[in-house]
Nucleic acid binder design. Structure first.
Lengths: 109, 109
DNA sequence: CGTTAATATCGTAATATTGCAATATATAAA
DNA sequence: TTTATATATTGCAATATTACGATATTAACG
């Protein structure tokens, strides 16, 4: 096998897990960290910043974009990338809801 | 290839990406959701709740435990699982920090 | 048009993940 | 000790992911 039975779970579970999955690689976290530091940049800047080849960075950017974590604006031959807060807010509120419920109902073993 | 060059990234990037990765599957999100609803439970309860086989649930529980997201207390032949808030708090504060910086410095393209 | 620059896609190889059946382990009860 | 219960591990097959070199695409510039 190796596939995920996503039809067996709720839409929200699938949505948040897809965003979490996109953040489940250090290179993509590093890309977000860099984007946060510089505000916005083009793909080539990230290639210079991280020790990965250009096609690899491009693929990671694609996954971040598919998850809604970044957006890209075409500027001539370059593409200007920046963080999109929506997906971040989605999983942040999911986690905050977990923390709130844990604090209110601390019946942990 | 298929491996991750984790030695190329910062310890924090590796730490948070490992936690995110553990949440990057809908079955593991569903397990957390169920644990949050019932407070604590044993593996068999989750097997009855989710449409996955017992070894598969056991494997997912192992990954959640490795990431620090749950803890398990042995109670006779069963193991009582519950959410551990530390890992949740780690990535929640990481995301909150991103959101704060995005609000303060909105130079997005 | 030809060239350059920036990014994306393709092809391929290696590794990782997912899932289940079968089996192993470990404790409790009879 | 035997049996039942609960969970973990192993072995396997299928799929997914990661990474890079080579190539394609696209737009600006001369």
């Amino acid at each position: 096998m190796g596939f995920t039975k996503s039809d067996l779970f709720t839409p929200e579970q699938n949505t948040v897990s897809l965003i979490f999955k996109a953040l489940g690689h250090p290179a993509r976290v590093a890309i977000l960290d860099y984007l946060l530091k510089v505000g916005e940049c083009i793909c080539g800047d990230i290639v210079n910043e991280l020790p990965l080849a250009q096609p690899t960075i491009s693929r990671h950017l694609k996954e971040l974009k598919n998850a809604g974590l970044i957006k890209g604006n075409i500027e001539g031959t370059a593409i200007c990338y920046c963080i999109s807060q929506e997906a971040v807010a989605t999983i942040a509120s999911y986690l905050d809801s977990i923390l709130t419920q844990l604090n209110n109902n601390n019946n942990c073993c």
